[in-house]
């Protein structure tokens, strides 16, 4: 059973992102439990890619740390399968098209189903290419997440109409990374999406503070935070569990 809906049953959703294998898979496993315990409603787990073009400096470095540590797609599937014995938090994978394609899309999605992965987020698969993996995703009950961006304008309705799971609303131009100011009229983007769909809209890119999260959650269904957490992991490495737990707790509190 796809458990993505569970992510939106506890008020506004807090969705933390971490790169699997950064700095090692043991730490990733502990972080999954810790973030779930401290209020993460959905965990976005990044499968590292050699060339993450949608990522800013922070997550690029995390991907490099994970790959240098020998992280592979198979090891990540193994990790999620193991984590599933102790924890039923919804988990989505975030990665790039070639990681799925290169592994073999059929097997990739079958394994996702086996591990209880509820959704797949691929920033380099826009609306025009969504048929690339649509059949495999459907057959294995994995939601393919659609993006809307500040440049999407008239595309928002078209994208939202056929979106599933939730809509990933990109807060700003550019790549992932902490921003002190988010100036996009996200509220209007979400209103446009909501005029054609009932699925939740979550906002990501640039969010790091409880204040930003609180404001954005007032007109969205959830906030996605990546770089701010990855920075904590970059700083504390294998000792980051405590600090990430505190951060996740504070962020979830701010949007309740």
């Amino acid at each position: 059973m796809n458990n993505l809906k569970k992510a939106f049953e506890n008020g506004k959703a807090f969705i933390p992102f971490i790169t699997a294998g950064d700095p090692d898979l043991e730490t990733t496993e502990k972080l999954i439990y810790a973030m779930a315990e401290n209020g993460a409603d959905l965990i976005e787990l990044g499968i590292p890619f050699s060339d993450p073009v949608a990522e800013g400096d922070t997550i690029q470095k995390a991907d490099m740390r994970a790959l240098s540590a020998g992280t592979t797609t198979d090891k990540i599937f193994g990790l999620v399968l193991k984590a599933r014995e102790k924890c039923d938090v919804p988990i989505a994978f975030m990665t790039y098209a070639n990681v799925v394609f290169g592994y073999g899309a059929d097997i990739f999605f079958e394994k996702c189903k086996k591990c209880g992965i509820c959704a797949l987020i691929l920033p380099d698969i826009p609306f025009e290419e969504k048929n690339e993996f649509a059949i495999q995703a459907k057959n294995n009950d994995v939601k393919l997440i659609s993006f809307i961006a500040p440049t999407s304008h008239e595309r928002i309705k078209m994208i939202s109409k056929s979106a599933e799971g939730f809509i990933y609303c990109v807060s700003s131009l550019g790549v992932t990374g902490v921003r002190s100011n988010i100036t996009t009229d996200i509220n209007s983007m979400i209103k446009l999406a909501k005029s054609v769909t009932d699925i939740p809209c979550c906002v990501g890119f640039g969010i790091s503070t409880p204040e930003q999260a609180k404001e954005i959650s007032s007109y969205s269904d959830g906030v996605i935070v990546g770089s701010a957490i990855v920075k904590i992991i970059e700083k504390y490495g294998t000792d980051s569990i405590k600090y990430v737990s505190e951060y996740v707790k504070e962020m979830k509190e701010s949007i309740k």
Partner: peptide, 9 residues
């Protein structure tokens, strides 16, 4: 066209 939505338009 395998690119982020931000670039599509």
């Amino acid at each position: 066209q395998y690119i982020p939505e931000t670039l599509m338009n």
